[in-house]
Amino acid sequence: MQKHKILIADDHAMVRDGVKNLVQQNKDLIVIGEARSGNETLELFDKLQPDLLIMDISMPDMNGMEVSRTILAKNPGASIVILSMYDDEDYISRCLEYGVKGYVVKNESGSELEYAIRSVLQGKNYFSRQAQDVIFKKYSQNVARKKTQEEEISLTKREIEIVRLIADGLTSQQMADRLFISPRTVETHRANLMKKMSVKNAIELVKKAQQLDLLQ
Rank of each mutant, 00 (worst) to 15 (best):
I80C: 11
A131C: 11
R69E: 09
Q49Y: 13
Y98D: 00
M59N: 15
D56E: 07
N63K: 06
V67T: 03
S37M: 14
E159V: 04
R129Q: 12
L83Y: 09
I80F: 07
F136K: 12
Q132M: 12
G123E: 13
G102I: 07
S58R: 07
E34V: 03
K147M: 13
E34K: 05
L72F: 12
G102T: 05
I117T: 09
C95A: 09
E89L: 01
Y103F: 05
E97A: 11
M62L: 03
N26P: 10
R129W: 07
Y91V: 13
K27P: 06
L121E: 12
T156M: 12
F127C: 07
Y91M: 02
I135E: 01
L44M: 08
V120P: 06
G99V: 04
P76N: 03
S154K: 15
E159P: 08
R94S: 01
R158T: 06
G123T: 14
L53F: 05
L155M: 04
S37P: 03
L121Y: 12
L42I: 01
V104T: 06
V134F: 13
E150F: 00
L72W: 08
D88S: 15
Q25I: 04
A35P: 02
Y126H: 06
V105K: 00
F45P: 00
T70V: 11
E40F: 02
E112W: 02
I71E: 09
A131R: 05
M62V: 15
V120F: 14
D56Q: 13
S84F: 02
V100D: 04
T148G: 06
P60M: 09
R94M: 08
A13I: 02
S79Q: 15
N125F: 06
V81G: 00
P60A: 01
N107S: 06
N75V: 13
A78E: 07
D46N: 04
L42W: 04
I80Q: 01
N63E: 05
V67K: 07
S154P: 07
D133S: 14
Y126V: 00
T41E: 00
L42A: 02
S68K: 06
P60S: 00
S128P: 11
V81K: 00
Q25E: 08
I71R: 02
N75T: 10
R36V: 13
Q141F: 11
F127S: 01
D28N: 11
Q122C: 11
L29G: 01
L22P: 02
C95H: 03
S111A: 12
P50S: 13
R129T: 08
K146N: 11
A78H: 12
L29T: 01
Q132S: 04
L44N: 15
P60L: 15
M14L: 07
E43D: 02
D90E: 10
D90L: 11
I117Y: 04
A131K: 03
R158M: 12
D28E: 08
Y115S: 14
T148V: 09
I135G: 12
K101G: 10
I117F: 15
K146L: 14
G99S: 05
K147L: 03
Y115T: 09
V19M: 04
N63Q: 15
M62D: 02
G110K: 13
S128I: 14
S68F: 01
Q25S: 04
Y91D: 15
D133L: 11
E97S: 15
V31Y: 05
V143G: 07
L113F: 14
M65R: 10
I92K: 10
D46C: 00
